[in-house]
Design a protein around this nucleic acid. Structure first.
Lengths: 348, 348
DNA sequence: CAAAATTATTTTACCATTTTAATGCAGTAA
DNA sequence: TTACTGCATTAAAATGGTAAAATAATTTTG
């Protein structure tokens, strides 16, 4: 079938270990031998077997990216950058999707042992990672867009996040500053887990409270929904609109939710931002190209990805965990405006 | 570090191969021994090393999904299904992104040799796969959304596609049937390769020709653009609109392009479908939730994915390649209508 | 009850590679 | 000549597992 190092050794008339040394550029090898070996490698189109190599070396030059819900377009933006940067450093990237939160560490651990991964990046998920998780893992781990539980030793892992609560606070405050009082919120919270979404929800409530606006449960849609963000946003917004006639603004905890919500608003014959203001989270293209373009709290996806890779390789060099908090940008594209009066009259 | 089969053997007081047999459920093992071994496995939290296992077995129970441009939301829909079905059969899925077309087979081959993959799914890409490619590969290969060159022995690979040319023909014909004559087209064609996009482009031209409509190059935007579909669609549409004042409809060869194009149309103060009709391809959610919802030639993503997996496992059982052509569905959501007259007057 | 058959377990070889220790061979110093 | 050095290479051990052959223990059978 495919050729092995023995075939190369035989063809080039040298010993097996000489081939290995030439291929790995380790130790001595005369130029002539080197050339003989390389010629054989070319002729037989030899590719070293990674299983054997990793087995012997105990490490694999492979980094795994575990993504919680790979379908989120925001994560897509990061994946591309991560991939490029990792390949650039001569490592391999493997992408693995995780469907249910809370399993990430178990899967990561299994994969690491399974095939001698040398690093793990966890994108999305929850905050429920324990100190023991990282110790068990035994290889550098970077959390991207989430952090570990607060009591975990920060040296054990790296993280790249935005301050979800604060950013959400700012977004909500922005709506308040425009004059909104009846500000709704759509948030996908699964289980009892702490996630970026739940932090954003905290920020929303905090902003309202600190500006003396009563938190009205009828304006809030938090639900555990495994379906896509678009559909979730649409359904939740339809629901909010039917329950609540005088809502004037919405904070959607993800852009996909915002797009779905926008569709619901428009499908009711309401206008954005004239009747309802909408602001989303993340900064995906679908929101940018939506009509109207939707305001959003944009995360610097590319920079965050680069930062995650840098942290990973720093840890690979033996450094301790690095924790970076990026600032998000409130992109005002016109889907938020002071609450109108026309709509309310018409709908009242 | 992490425990090996020897540790289990020692702890449970049996031979190494007994542990192996228990773990693989192969051959004889008394209930007591089995229990002893399992207890040790639990105690040490033992996970077999896949590198070693694959090395010995020469196969890995791992299937690789090579995706050309993983960022396309349409592919996302399929990935999820593929993953589920593969895991269900006790195999592992690995996802790998390919950025430039034409490399797929080289990468696939390398990966197969590298780590004893037992199957490959190629999603997207071009049609430039040769008979030798599949022979070199040596493991089952399924092409999803593309096919191989026509002269390749169909037994050597499986494919799951729609008839891109015919579907595009139908979409274009639909616009013609609505009364459109000035029908534009936006199509991302990279290099000289045959891709689904280029087939769709053929269908578009064929439909026009067969209905006696002259093909006007100024209505056609085909470009090699590595940037995202949204941006590409937006730029190309802006361009078309500036070059061509009396265009009344657009066939976009992907929904992401359609969304970008729609944004361009709306940003010029034109209306959809009153001034410009738009139809896309694929069936992604962003088009469904767009406002207005965009008509599209929807591919049955889930069924296609299932079909691809079925074909792969059939081949793994020794069967020959299976070739399935699915029918797409023309989803009429309201972004296409007979050409209006108001807009033309205003713009003329 | 011994031989045969069956069941349970271990020993051994092997997978493709890297790495360590060993070997051969020039050249140089004693 | 002998002993040592340094380079080039190779043989052999090791990596963690599986599988075939070998062996041991048990049960069935004549």
């Amino acid at each position: 079938m495919s050729s092995t190092i023995k075939d190369i050794a035989k063809l080039s008339g040298v010993g097996i270990s000489t081939v290995s040394r030439v291929l790995n550029n380790s130790g001595f090898a005369s130029p002539e031998t080197r050339e003989k070996v390389m010629a054989a490698v070319r002729e037989l189109n030899y590719i070293p077997n990674n299983n054997a190599r990793n087995l012997k070396k105990g490490s694999s030059k492979t980094i795994e990216l575990l993504v919680k819900s790979i379908t989120n377009p925001f994560f897509q933006k990061m994946i591309h950058t991560i991939e490029q940067k990792i390949l650039l450093r001569g490592y391999n990237l493997e992408i693995k999707n995780v469907n249910y939160s809370g399993q990430e560490m178990a899967i990561a651990l299994r994969e690491v042992q399974d095939r001698n991964l040398c690093g793990v990046i966890l994108m999305g998920g929850s905050f429920e990672y324990t100190e023991q998780d990282f110790k068990n893992l035994g290889v550098p781990c970077v959390l991207l867009t989430v952090s570990a539980a607060p009591d975990v030793d920060k040296a054990l892992y790296s993280s790249v996040i935005i301050d979800d609560e604060a950013e959400s606070y700012k977004a909500t405050e922005y709506l308040i500053s425009l004059g909104h009082q009846r500000i709704g919120c759509i948030c996908n919270i699964y289980g009892a887990m702490k996630t970026p979404n739940s932090l954003r929800f905290q920020g929303y409530k905090k902003a309202l409270a600190e500006h003396g606006i009563e938190i009205d449960p009828s304006l809030i849609s938090t639900m555990n929904d495994t379906r896509s963000g678009y559909e979730f946003g649409f359904n939740m917004m339809k629901n909010l609109l039917s329950r609540n006639k005088n809502i004037t603004a919405i904070v959607a905890m993800a852009d996909v939710i915002a797009v779905g919500a926008a569709k619901a608003v428009l499908s009711e014959g309401l206008r954005i931002p004239d009747d309802i203001s909408i602001i989303g989270f993340d900064g995906i293209e679908a929101a940018e190209y939506y009509s109207p373009a939707l305001d959003t709290v944009s995360q610097p996806a590319e920079q965050m990805a680069i930062s995650a890779i840098d942290a990973l390789f720093a840890m690979l060099q033996g450094e301790e965990g690095i924790h970076t908090v990026f600032e998000a940008t409130l992109l005002k594209r016109g889907s938020c405006a002071p609450p109108g009066t026309i709509a309310k009259k018409e709908r009242g």
